[in-house]
Design a protein around this nucleic acid. Sequence first.
DNA 1: CGCCGTTTCTTGAATCATTCCAGATTATCT
DNA 2: AGATAATCTGGAATGATTCAAGAAACGGCG
Lengths: 149, 149
Amino acid sequence: MDDAELLRSRGLRVTRPRLAALVALRREGHLTADEVRSRIGEDDRPVSVQAVYDVLTTLTREDLVRRIEPAGSAARYEVRTGDNHHHLVCRTCGSIEDVDCATGAPPCLEPASHRGFQVDEAEITFWGTCPRCLGDSPSTTTPPPKGRL
Amino acid sequence: MDDAELLRSRGLRVTRPRLAALVALRREGHLTADEVRSRIGEDDRPVSVQAVYDVLTTLTREDLVRRIEPAGSAARYEVRTGDNHHHLVCRTCGSIEDVDCATGAPPCLEPASHRGFQVDEAEITFWGTCPRCLGDSPSTTTPPPKGRL
DNA sequence: CGCCGTTTCTTGAATCATTCCAGATTATCT
DNA sequence: AGATAATCTGGAATGATTCAAGAAACGGCG
């Protein structure tokens, strides 16, 4: 099933910005809205800021894309692969890696006490230092993408 | 050890805004910077927006306060109790509850594959619906604090 | 194949949280 | 008390995201 069919199967219209966003996210994961926009602009006709947010919001709502918001960074998007994986975030350079879920199926982890909550997802962010930043001198290190924490 | 001693023990100056922030956060957890500011303003002389951010940043750096940033909401602060606990967030009203860590000491959970990362913390957010929103009709439900997701 | 109605995209401005700046204050140490 | 560096104040700037109004385009229908 190609992207066009994928969109139709969710009852979504097939538009250039949507197809381009899916392609961009399939090529690189964990992109910010702005990065998605520039990737699209590179090999396609540019789209407006608004269109990018609309597209990403729609695709997220239909579960074709997952949105993550690591503390201290703008929201990032990745193609929803179906598996429930988690993220490793480098405190120094902000890079993000996927890691498989250690336990089984979603929500993959049960809270010690539900307190009456109906839990449907456990989102896990592992914080640490990436191998590159571990070895590098601070000067050669790529600075974090945006805000600090 | 009272708050003044606590601050001194970290090499921090004892100031009214810092003491007031600690008191406010001890009374209520998971407050936004702005909420901390208004709580201080209620029973103390008001402090500037800037002072609140400075104070919270400093206290966070010294590990007296923990900062969390649930997706779709402004940053929230809570007094660091030392235990590593996690959070239950209601998708409907945005309320946050603490839950103890099921596994042991930090990082409390190991990623399936480190990929060379040196992991020091596993931050877990459980998403779901709180008991109040489960039972309530949508109309009587308190709306989410800020942005949607 | 061309028209219509609805959805989606464009441009431009607004909002919110957070940070930057420069100068006035104030908690500590001598 | 006085010096000095850390803090706080007020005001403006920044960055991500959203709102608004109108133009354009997708997809169904005749």
